[in-house]
Design a protein around this nucleic acid. Structure first.
Lengths: 128, 128
DNA sequence: CCTGACCTTCCAGTCAGTGGAGCCTCTATG
DNA sequence: CATAGAGGCTCCACTGACTGGAAGGTCAGG
């Protein structure tokens, strides 16, 4: 399998796949012409990575998850721990964004949005 | 005012303030000894920047907002537009994070988290 | 043989800072 | 007056997770 097919089947850009090889997440073989020769194994890993990244796991997390995924004797508790820490981080981020959202929504609401220069948004951003 | 005082009063690290000068957001004068000499004006701008960044505006947004802030004849509609676009982006991000959160929470819930290798989290990440 | 798609490497840039080295300047104290 | 320590300066490199582009090699079809 060449990188194009893997890219299409995994949903990841070729650039990203090369990058993942660069940082050691996958180790595809090479054809005599120098092209990367992917096996099903690498395709699976890339699909795994795509899903994990889409769930917001960092590359570092992904590395740990991949290792656990490949380790037949892993304890599910190890995986659960990584996931729980990540879950808490997502939760916190949602909270932050929500309060940003609320503040900003209030300001947008209060702003006339016309040709006059008077604007509560800028007023609020200004030092009090 | 030296950078230390400005840092304390604006709440921004000195490094960040130098960076903001670097990218042209502020233009403090210089003392004969080479130290940056901040006026109230720059302090205000930095405080403004701190608030805007805390609300998640990008530096590019901040540049536009600063320009509008300094423009006595700006239309509040211009400001409102930037804010509305940003608000929509925040909203979308919250949605993404929320669905990540829900998916992950389900998985964590389903995972025994014990010494056995059977783990629904990894199962779900695997290609189906 | 040629075209165009696909592959390769390598370098540079993104965003918004952060960390550190090496050096200069100011102020307070002995 | 010497010195210690705090604070200032510049410059370079690094972060994460890619992305863009240049310059060139390879392959399949007509």
């Amino acid at each position: 399998m060449n990188i194009g097919e893997v890219s299409e089947r995994s949903g990841l850009p070729a650039k990203t796949i090369r990058y993942y090889e660069d940082i050691g997440l996958i180790k595809p073989l090479r054809d005599t012409n120098g092209y990367r020769a992917f096996r099903e194994n690498e395709l699976h890993k890339l699909a795994f990575l795509g899903r994990a990244r889409a769930l917001g796991f960092t590359i570092k997390d992904c590395r740990a998850l991949l290792a656990l995924w490949e380790d037949k004797s892993r304890a599910s508790a190890d995986v659960k721990n990584i996931a729980r820490v990540h879950l808490a981080a997502i939760h916190a981020k949602i909270g932050d964004l929500q309060s940003m959202h609320d503040t900003l929504a209030e300001l947008v609401e209060a702003c006339a949005g016309d040709a006059r220069p008077d604007c509560p948004i800028l007023k609020d951003l200004a030092p009090h």
